[in-house]
Amino acid sequence: MRNFFIIIIIAAFGIMLYPLFDSFSGNEELSELASFYAQKENVEKVNSANLVTAVVVTYRGLDTMGEVTILFLTAAIIAFFLKKQSDVRSLRENTEIFTTAAKLLIPIIIMLGVYIFINGHLSPGGGFQGGAVIASAIILILLAFPNKPFNHKFFGYMESVSGLVFVGLAALGGLIGLGYLDNAILPLGTFGELMSAGAIPVIYSFVGLKVGAELSNILNGFQSVQSDS
C-alpha cells in the first residue's frame, strides 16, 4: 500500500519532467550569456584559454567563494562531530609491498595535483580537480600508514592562509582593478602561455590548496574514528 503511493508520486514526478524533455529540441547555438563570454574582445580581456576556468574564477568568482565557504563549514561540522574519540584504537599494520608502493606513488600523485591546478587556465583542470587529486594522495597516506599522527596544524594553517590569500586577491581586484575578483591586477601576458591570464592561475592555485586541505580534513575526521576490531 505504501509502495503504491510512492509509485504514484514518482510517476507524477516523471510526468512533471516529461514536458521538460519534450520541449527540449537540442541547442543549435550558444545562449546569449555564453556568446557574451565567447566573444573575441571579452576573451582577450580575460586571456584565459579555458573558458570554464574564466567563468569559475572571474565571472562567477563570488559563487566559487561561497562554495569554498560551504566546504569549510561542512569540514568544521564534521570535525566537531567526530572529534571526541576516547576508546582505544587498534589498527592493523600494512604489508611491506603496499607501504613501499605508497611511498613511491604519493609524491607523484601530489605532483599531478599541483600540475592540474597550475595549468587550470590552459587545459582541462583547475583548483577543484587538483584539490581532489591531492586529497586522494592524502587518503593513500592514511590507508598505508594508519598509525602515523596526522598533522592537523599544517593543514589548518594551509587552509586558512589559502583562504585569506583568495579573499585578499579578490579584494585587491576591487581596489586597483575594475571590480571585485577582477583578474587584470597582474599582467595579462601572451594568450596560451603559463604566465598569462593575470591573477587566474594564482587564485585557482590557492583554491586548489584550500580544497585539498579541506577534503583532507574531512577524510582524516572519518579515519580518526576507525578501528579494526
Partner: peptide, 9 residues
Amino acid sequence: PDVAMTEAA
C-alpha cells in the same frame, strides 16, 4: 572534460 575530471576524482 573539466566536469569529467571532477566526477572521476
